[in-house]
Amino acid sequence: MKPVKTSVLAATCTVLALSLTACGGGGGGAAAAPKSSNGETTVKIMVGGLEKQIYLPVMLAQNLGYFKAQGINAQLSNEPAGVDAETAMIAGQVDAVVGFYDHNIDLQSKHKSTQSVVQLLQAPGEVEMVRTDLAGSVKSPADFKGRHLGVTGLGSSTNFLTQYLEQANGVTAGQATSVAVGAGPSFVAAMQNKQIDAGMTTEPTISLLQKQGLAKPLIDMRTAQGAKAALGGTYPASCLYFTTGYVQKNPEVVQKLVNAFVRTLKWIQGHSAAEIADKMPSDYYKGVGKAAYTKALENEKGMYSPDGLMPADGAQTVLKVLSSFDPTVKGHTVDLSKTYTNSFVQKAK
């Protein structure tokens, strides 16, 4: 399945008058999951960058055969920015998204009901990289004033985190410019061509930037400790989420997917970075090399959730971060209990 263009999705939702039910945001718009001739249930899952290590559990589950073992035909598609994957799901183009949990809070504030069913990361896995020639003058987010800052997409989780770092360090709205540059090669090119002064990205792009001498780490959120230092608490990131309507109509399908992911998370805990890297497609470490890819994975392996549960202070930390700058969340009532559930993970355990 090819990535769905954002412009097409926007047009789709416009034609449907942005109806919550029509766009799959409520209980009435979701359909029962279809079964193929061999009895497998087909689920279309869009990922905000399959090759990123923050989303590694998706391809790992596929390659380990854990989806198949649950009777699931997981049709995976790729979209570099999580915000576009979210749009695809709301428009009914895909059934589920693997992206950052924060989108569920943002969407509820926009009167769209979605729900995270299993947490894959307990830290963002993101690093704010500053261009090497500017490393001496950009020493903290307080120096972002007047700078162009790379994010995967406007409205993406990297954009959310960047805006929070600005606000928390005295940089007011409009004093810095977010630039959508995607991830991987396009992010590297933006840094190389000096389109951006700094930017937020993940592995293996981080290692590639360092290998080429293009940028240096400024703020490192690849570990739970690093995330707490930057964001003030545990920041759950990658998760599997659906519209609430899909969850309500297809609980057995959701349970099977969660079973597969919980099993995958346990497999990660019991294997080395080298063993995990061996399960990844070779093009995932193209450019950076398998050795550097494996080393990066070894350094940030602790970001993966050990059990798939929402951390006790996780949802509240994310709400605090979004409430500090996001006008759709700030000052609005958000029912966190409706943005995630641990029930499927608890049954899987």
Rank of each mutant, 00 (worst) to 15 (best):
S178H: 03
T158I: 10
Q175A: 15
S157C: 11
F160C: 00
A173S: 14
G155Q: 04
A142H: 09
A142Q: 13
L134N: 05
F160G: 01
N159I: 02
V151C: 10
K145T: 14
F160S: 14
A135K: 15
T132D: 10
Q175Y: 00
K139N: 13
L149N: 04
H148P: 02
Q175P: 04
H148T: 10
A142Y: 01
T132E: 12
T152E: 13
Y164K: 02
G170C: 07
G174I: 09
S140W: 04
L149P: 06
G153Y: 07
K145G: 07
P141T: 09
R147A: 14
T158K: 07
V171A: 08
T172F: 00
H148R: 15
R147I: 07
G146L: 12
Q163T: 13
L154C: 05
Y164F: 15
S157T: 15
L149F: 05
K145V: 14
S178R: 09
V171F: 01
G153D: 14
L165E: 13
F144G: 01
K139M: 09
H148Y: 10
A173Y: 03
A135M: 09
Y164S: 02
A142G: 14
S156Q: 05
G136W: 06
L165F: 00
A176D: 06
P141S: 08
S137K: 14
T152L: 11
L149D: 03
S157H: 07
G155D: 05
F160I: 00
